[in-house]
Design a protein around this nucleic acid. Sequence first.
DNA 1: TAATGCAATATTGTTGACAATTTGTCTTTT
DNA 2: AAAAGACAAATTGTCAACAATATTGCATTA
Lengths: 229, 229
Amino acid sequence: MYESNKNEPIASLTIADSICNKLQTAIVEGIIPSGSKISEPALANQFGISRGPLREALSRLEACKLIERKPNVGARVISLTRQHLVEIYLIRESLEGLAARQAAKNMSDKELNEIDVLLDKHEQHIKQDQSYYQKEGEMDFHCRIIKGSRNNHLIEMYINDLYHLIRLYRYQFGMVSKRVPRAFVEHGQIVDAIRQHDGELAQFLMTRHIRSSRRTVEKMLDEHLAISD
Amino acid sequence: MYESNKNEPIASLTIADSICNKLQTAIVEGIIPSGSKISEPALANQFGISRGPLREALSRLEACKLIERKPNVGARVISLTRQHLVEIYLIRESLEGLAARQAAKNMSDKELNEIDVLLDKHEQHIKQDQSYYQKEGEMDFHCRIIKGSRNNHLIEMYINDLYHLIRLYRYQFGMVSKRVPRAFVEHGQIVDAIRQHDGELAQFLMTRHIRSSRRTVEKMLDEHLAISD
DNA sequence: TAATGCAATATTGTTGACAATTTGTCTTTT
DNA sequence: AAAAGACAAATTGTCAACAATATTGCATTA
């Protein structure tokens, strides 16, 4: 019996899992708008399932802070605010800095080569079409550094919780800026530092990279949009 | 009608909430031992409730990583390992460093004075009885710095998730060390830096404080206990 | 007319039963 | 005797109905 047993589970086994994933992308992409109330009966028969697994899915969405629940009242998608966005960026500066430092210790050559391939691909995409890079490429890079830290708790915190929030703000605020080429260069610098096992430098560069990104976003929000504080 | 409407909810309103709290302390205090399997039917009629709210509580325990669940198999209390403990300490170094830096910006004089009172109380307790300080006092201090950061997302991450894990390891590994007096001094230094609005220094001191604590613990684990890696 | 209180409605929380999956045991086979 | 397979028991996942709470609208009253 030839088991093709990749560590990846083939598909979302339980309904709650499946629904949770669908709701995550629905919220990220604004199909369920931020701030809107979530009706359990409505969603349940919209997906053709019972309220049981739906509530389980909502629990997980609450855990990764995509929704807020009040007892006996219900669930709402979180409201996007400038302050919250800044809070997340500050946390990212901190955690991804740590990740970069640890990645310089623990990341394998194989992983680094794969990142090289990724960055090459990004370079091509940037020359033609910025949108891809902005939407997925950037986060892809950051996730790999996180994974390279070998800190499983950090990896879970990031992939399960923070990741979705970051994507949410990215989508909803449509963050595209002149920083894309600059960010690309900074990614290269970070990889270099990791390759040389210079943890301190990698941490410094990563922290600064995200801080720059944060400031660009803050400026953008101040100028362009009058988003409720 | 004189509403004594403190922002605190009077009691855990929903059963799931109540059970979740009970399970958290049960796990932290080892009443439900780490690594043990959790039987839903058993727990349910042990608490005299149905499996519905119990599962909701388990979902939250999974969210704060006190238990691990596998689909169609069940839930287990996490196994305590040296590596996991180190991972958490590294995350704390990072996040509490950030918190201290932000606290230097945002913490009010009132809060600082309250911490002074707290530290005085600690000093008394240390002179008589180290156990109190180790068990709750230390975490109390750290929580206040976190709250002083005014970063709500960070506060929730810490209070809802990390906090319980830290307490869990504290209880189970019975961490008492000669560092207690030293740690007390370091707490004072951190408060001083915050009071002077020296964010960089506060961050540096907090990070170093936790790093020292981590190294003490690592050494302790290497010497005394042969805990499974 | 505005505010208050009550009743009706709708939503969430909880329960117990049913379905699907896994685990353990026993039999069968090589 | 060991391994494979089938059956049985137990556990988890899911469902639909019931209870409790919150919200809404209306009527009543000041």
